Every structure is written in C-alpha cells, then in structure tokens.
Simulated scan of single mutants.
Amino acid sequence: MTIVEHLPETKRGIGLAGVGAIAAWVGAYQLNEHIWDWFLYGRIGLDAATRPASALHFFLYDTAKIALLLTGIIFAVGVLRTFITIERTRALLGGRREGIGNVMAAGLGVATPFCSCSAVPAFIGFVGAGVPIGVTLSFLIASPLVNEIAIGLLWTTFGWDIALLYVAAGLTIAIVAGWVLGRMGVQRWVEPFVLRPLTASQNLLATANAGASAGAGANPRPSPQLRVRIGLQEVREILTKVWPYLLIGVGLGAVIHGWVPSDFFAAHAGPDNPFGVLVAVVLGVPLYSNAAGALPLVEALADKGVPMGTLLAFMMSVVALSLPEMVLLKRVLKLPLLGAFAGVVAVGIVAVGYLFNAILT
C-alpha cells in the first residue's frame, strides 16, 4: 500500500493529514542535529573534537537536512503548480521586457530561503513552466546568495551599510549574470529532462482537467487528493534524479569541512595582497555552507584585518560557487552551461570584491 492509497477522502481529512505531516516535518528538521549529536557522540562515543568525527557528523546531518528540505520544497512546488498554469507563470516572468524578468526573478530569489541545493527543484519547475533560462538563472543565483539570515547577521555584526552593500551586490550579480547567460542562448545546454520535467505528474493533472472539462457541469479544478498525489509524484521523480549527486556533493563538503584555517586565509588574502579577492574566491569555492554558516569565519577574518570587500567576495563564493553545488547542478546543466554559469558569477563576485575594497578603504 502506497501513501497515495492511504489519502483521506474528504477535504477535512486531507487538511488534518496535512497538518500532521507538517508537524512531523518540522519536528524532524528541528531534531535532526540533536539526533546525530546523541547517536555519534553519546551512543557510539566518538570524540567531537576529531576531524573524522566532525566530518561524519557533517555528512549525516547535512544529508538529512537537505533531504528534508528537498522533500518539503518539491512537494510544495508540485502542489502550487496545480494552482498556477504554465501560461500564468510565463506571463509573470517570461512575458516582460528584456531585463525586467531578471530583476523580478532575482527579487523572488531573495524572498525565498533556499540554499543552493534546495533551489534546484524550483529551477526545474520554472524552466518546465516556460520561463526563459536566463531569468531562471537569476533566481538560481539570488536565492542562496542573498538570504534574510545573512542580512540580519551582517546588520547586527557590521552595521546596516555593509548589509545593504551585500544585498545590492548579490542582486546585481544575479540580475547581470542571468541576463548575460540568457543572451548567450544557453538553453541548448540544459539537460533534456529539465525541459520536459515531471511528465507523469503533468499527465495526472492534464488527464484530470480534460476529464473534468468534458463532463457537464464538472469542476475543472483538480481535487485535493489529486494535488497531493501530484506533489508526491514530483518528490519521487526529482529525488530519483538528483539523489546520487546530492550524496556526492555533501560528501565533498564533509571531507573539506573546516579545511581553511583563519590564519592561513588572513596571510594570503589580507590587505597587503593585491590578489587578495581572487585568493578569497578560490578558497571559498571548496567550502560548503550557506551565507549564515560562513559568517562566523567572516567575522573572525574581519578582526584580523581582512578587507570587507574581500570578505564579501569570500562569503559569496562559498554560497554561489561551492563544489558541492556544482556537482548537484551538473545533473541539470550540461558542462558548457555549468562552466559559463560559474565563470560569469565568479567574474561578478571578483568585481564586487574589488569595488567594495575601493569604496570602503
């Protein structure tokens, strides 16, 4: 018996089941770190101070966290897509004058608390809905790059001016990079399954709508049970495609977790090195974190005299160009587009780093 076969028959039953599922999801997400702390350090007795134990904890915790995020986000996007037609989505982001769609997509990315890995399902959904690839890439860049947690922490740690500079830089990179990539005609380098996504779930919706429209006086909108079924179908289809790459990406992040010590960074990316911004970007790429996770290292490096533009470039490279993210994106982008994506974003980050160093010195 599958989950779909156990779905309640009434709207009230669907609502109660939904509340229970959300509560279980939130509980699992909140307890995730505590469970691995107990299991590895309490039950098994590993020493948390050792690098192997820390790497194992990172891998298990982050794998579970991203799996929960992916499941929740994919399901929510799948259900929402039953309310929003392809034509409406295309009209919102794809039917604008050139550049306007990139601005709107970048703004939407800032408003969504997705990490790099979690933004991939939304990327697939946007492309499948007919949104231009350049506009969708603006969302993919902005979503992890500029988030409310990092803004709040930067505001309280370094002041509102630095926080606003961070927001402006992230939006600029997302808008310009998406526009440039869109002008390059890179859609031919997107994996075919992204351009024709979720055929099984789409067929469910199309069949239901066609049958409803054919019946006299029938309600053309899908039933709650069908919406849930479509959401679950999309979870299964996308996770099946990206799961191996997710494990590889998180594994890389676990291996190199904590690799760059602050003293090494300060020595090679300090104010005396004219190539400090480039060094910061190169050092940030192998790391795996979100902007909030990178902030403690950024604060420690600021105390050592590393320029603010260099620190912002480092934080942006950690979030937008990490190796684990590139591994996961490889599943949806072919190598030419992946290289162009990384190159354009890297150039933007380096330019912003040097610009901010010039402004803030």
Rank of each mutant, 00 (worst) to 15 (best):
Y245W: 12
P244T: 08
E234C: 04
K241G: 08
P244Q: 06
E237T: 03
H257R: 13
T240Q: 08
G231K: 00
G249F: 05
W243N: 07
R236C: 15
L232G: 03
G249R: 06
L239E: 10
L252P: 07
K241F: 13
L239K: 06
V255D: 01
I256K: 06
L247Y: 07
L232M: 02
Q233F: 14
T240V: 12
P244E: 04
K241S: 13
A254N: 09
R236E: 15
A254F: 09
P244M: 02
G249V: 13
Y245A: 14
T240H: 12
R229M: 10
A254S: 06
R236L: 14
V250R: 05
V242Y: 10
V242L: 14
I256N: 04
G258R: 05
Y245Q: 01
I230H: 01
P244V: 10
G251W: 07
R229L: 09
V250E: 10
I248S: 00
G253E: 01
V255P: 12
L247N: 11
V255E: 02
I230Y: 09
I238D: 09
R236H: 15
G251V: 09
P244F: 10
V242F: 15
G251Y: 07
L252Y: 14
I230R: 03
G258N: 02
V242S: 06
Q233L: 14
A254H: 04
L232P: 00
R229A: 13
V235I: 07
G258H: 12
H257Q: 07
G251F: 02
V235R: 05
G249D: 07
V255G: 12
I238M: 13
G253P: 13
Q233T: 12
Q233S: 15
G249K: 03
K241T: 15
H257D: 15
T240A: 10
G258E: 11
G251K: 07
Y245V: 11
L247W: 06
H257A: 12
K241N: 12
L232N: 11
G249I: 02
I238R: 11
I248E: 06
G258V: 06
L247E: 06
R236G: 13
L239D: 08
A254T: 06
V235T: 02
Q233V: 11
L239S: 04
A254Q: 07
I230P: 12
W243V: 03
G249W: 10
I238C: 09
Q233A: 14
G253V: 07
V250H: 05
Q233P: 08
I248Q: 09
T240E: 14
I248P: 05
I248Y: 00
V235L: 02
E234Y: 09
R229K: 15
A254I: 02
L239V: 13
I238F: 14
G253N: 04
R229C: 12
L247T: 06
Y245K: 00
L252A: 05
Q233K: 08
Q233N: 14
R229D: 12
I230K: 03
G251Q: 00
I256H: 02
T240I: 11
W243Q: 13
Q233H: 11
V235D: 00
G231Q: 01
G258T: 09
I256T: 12
E237N: 03
